[in-house]
Each structure stands twice: as structure tokens, then as C-alpha cells.
Design a binder for these strands. Sequence first.
DNA 1: TCCTACACGTGACAC
DNA 2: TGTGTCACGTGTAGG
Lengths: 220, 220
Amino acid sequence: MEYQYLDCGFEGLSITEDGNVSGTVSRTVKRKSNYDYTSGHECKSKNLQAERRRRQKLSDRLLTLRALAPRITNMKKETIIEDAINYIQELQGNVKFLSDQLHLLEMEPFSEAPGGSPKKEETDDVEETNKHMIQEEVEVGYMGGNKVQIKIIFKKKRGKFTKLLEALSSFGFQLSDTSITSAKGAILVSSFAEAKGLIYDDRVAVEEARELLLKIVRSI
Amino acid sequence: MEYQYLDCGFEGLSITEDGNVSGTVSRTVKRKSNYDYTSGHECKSKNLQAERRRRQKLSDRLLTLRALAPRITNMKKETIIEDAINYIQELQGNVKFLSDQLHLLEMEPFSEAPGGSPKKEETDDVEETNKHMIQEEVEVGYMGGNKVQIKIIFKKKRGKFTKLLEALSSFGFQLSDTSITSAKGAILVSSFAEAKGLIYDDRVAVEEARELLLKIVRSI
DNA sequence: TCCTACACGTGACAC
DNA sequence: TGTGTCACGTGTAGG
């Protein structure tokens, strides 16, 4: 970093009073003529060195920033910042995903949260009941032993299926073979299951199971 | 953004042959005198406008970057980048912490051994991975558009399937028709899906999707 | 040959 | 009356 400019004391140019509106949108251009040209003072090498320091600092920060991102597409300044932006967004997504998963995993051992988060669910429920009017439907067929075959139709909603699975599992239904098809906002789940919690004298209480399933589906 | 410079065709200055070594450490100064002053050609307004565009783009990126970070200390360029650096490091720390905690929580169901000697657990884990050898398996077939058909085999574990569903959903896979069968501790999921997050010029990156799915399955 | 990206010096401001 | 920051125009190296 050696500069042979001394930059102080001699000037080869004078201030040209040409078009003076500088760059940005609305600068209050006052043309105050800060410099005292009679004394030849206000030497600009100070400003020069400060500017050099500033640039170097900024460049260093950019390098540090680039060193953090794993996906490096280019050395260009602009792409460095772009990569940083993308990386930050990716990291934010990861954090959100992991956080959600962690909370979900923490809630799991206590079966279902009773209070839960009321606001979202409420609005969703209102929308659901008002708008589409897709009627939930549940059928249960007895297959012998504690085996049943169940069919469930409900309205498609984000995360509803996974919650249904969890609810089924926590109520003692063990699904073996299941198939899911979705069409026009409705979901049909058809499955073979073992109903371990609903056995009365070696027979599954089919109607009870059906009502339980219906309650589960509607409550989610 | 209005400039009253036209900058093309007229020059008020000549090239002064003064000290020519410019800024950085070792520039091979050749002083080639690129410009043809006889013809008045090689008008520099192109370069000027390009430079303006570059600056504006860079400024925009900086603003975007600043918009991402929650802790804004200053509007200065340098501090914007500093904040971004700190924020990225913080996010990385969060991801690492959450990931660790998640993995720890996943191992918990196996740690309910009554004796509680850590050796056993370790050997158990090793035995598990060695013995059963249910290899995760992922296949992805391209069906046109952004539709894919996926097949996933993994070892049955409590809550794993619902977590898989959520992960798929959060990574942009929208399952339409899927069937699940389980046998001897293994689960086979076969499904049609829309891969909305992985479209490159109207084509789905199949191999990427496969690797992503494999990572998801293994990480859960 | 042109085009892109960069660092530089400089005037204008804002504390 | 200074110090720090900014955007600007410009020369120059590489592609």
C-alpha cells in the first residue's frame, strides 16, 4: 500500500463551475464552496487517506461476508451480496423449519395440546365451515379380530393430514396399508388399521370407532 | 435520476501525464492511452452509464441485505455489511444448536433403558445400524411438468412418517396420490408429487430432488 | 474490438 | 473550524 502521491499543497485544477447537480434524487445543492482558496489551506490528503481507509474497510467486510457463505458463485461484489442474501434467507428457512419441528416433537409425548394456538385454528375453521362445505365422511368396516378398514374424507388443509395421523396414532389406531388421494381440495384416506384401544370381548366397537374418528377429523 | 451531463463528444481536459501509478499494490502500469482523440470516438458515456447502473444495483443489493437483518444499527454501508455478518453467524449458531437439539431429542426414545449404562446404548445403536440394515431407498421418476413420482423406503419409527410428510411439504413437495405399506419394520411410501421448489426451465431437477429426499429421510 | 468490473481521487454534505 | 461518508466520473485490466 504505497502511494507516491503527496496530494498536499499543489493543485493542477481549478473548480469548474459547470453543471453542479450531483447524483442522487434530491440533494439540496447549495454550492457552499467549502474551500478557502486564498490560503491554499484545507489540504485534501486527509480526505484522501480517509477515503482509502474507508474503501479498504468496506472491502474487508465484503471479503469477510463472502467467507461466510458456502455457495460462492462469483468474486464480484454484487454477487457476493446476492449470495449473502440468499444464504441468509436459506438460513432463516432452516431455522424456522427446525424450530417448528422441534416444537412439534416436544408436543408429541403429551398427545394433543388442549389450549394450543387458538387464533389460527379459529379462522381456519370459520373459513372451512363457511366456504367449501365439504362434508367430512367416515366409514369403518369390521375385518375380524381387532382389524378394521376405515375410509375418511375431509377438506385439504395444510398440516391437517399429519395431525390426523398423529391423532389416530395417539388414539390407538395402528395403520398398516393406507392410500391417500386428493382431488379438488378434498382428501380421501383409505386404510387398514388395528384398533387396539376399542376392543370389547374380542370385537371392535365399530360404531364407537366411527364416532371417535369423526370427532377427531372435525376437531383438527 | 436525471443528469444534465451529456458527456459525449466534448472534452474539457486533456490527459495530464503526471504521476500515473494508481492505487493498489502492484499494478502493471502500461499507460496504453486507449482513447483515440483524433476521431473524438470512444465516447465515454457508455462507460458512465454502465457505472451508474452498477452502482445502483450494488446499492439495491445492500438495501435488500439490510432489509433482511433484524438488528439495524446504522444506515452506513460498512455497518450494513457488519450487521449482515453478525446476523449470518447468529443464524448459523441457531441452526447448529437447533439441529443438535433435534438429533438429541430423536435419540431419546432409545434412551429409556432401565439400566441406563451408556455403553449399552452405544452398542445397541451400533447393533441396530449393523443388524437390521434396512437401507433407506429413494427413487424419483420424472412425469413431465413439475410432476414426479417418488418411492421411499425407510425404517419404521415412531412419528417418523408424519415428520417426513412435514419435511416434504416444507420443502415444496405437494403429494397428490400416495400409498403407504408397511412390513417387518420397513415402510414403503409411493406417491405422485408436484415438486414446486425444484423447477429449472420447466424441468424438474430429478437428481437433486432425489438427493434432497434422501437427505430428508436420513435426517429424520 | 467492445464490454464489464473495479479502485481511485474528488466535491458535497452531515455530524 | 474538522472528520467521516457518500456518489460521482474516470482510467485501466481482463475477458
